[in-house]
Amino acid sequence: MAYFAVANHAPNILPIILTLAIIQLFVQLIFFLHVGKGSDRIWNLVVLFSTVGIVLILVLGSIWIMGHLNYNMTPGQVQEFILKDESLMPDMK
């Protein structure tokens, strides 16, 4: 499990644990929730995929927007971000 990878401080770990979580998700969906069986399976899958779509828009969109807001709208830190990320010196403007 992902725990051991993190506990051993392996390098480049983030993609690995996310992949493991998604594998676990599919294992659970197929073996426990029996997605894809039963008479209404088409509608089950329609609802599942539209929900996955909404969830992805929500989560990725929030992170994206909040990251930019944090970058541009926090007065105390804007100067710091500009210095750090765009290698501009304040008196060079």
Partner: peptide, 22 residues
């Protein structure tokens, strides 16, 4: 199917909380 729809809306609620956390 109806219960499944409920679970999916519950999932959206958790997604909002995950996004807030992130």
């Amino acid at each position: 199917l109806g219960f499944w729809v409920y679970l999916m809306t519950d999932l959206i609620m958790f997604a909002v909380l995950f996004a807030t956390y992130a």
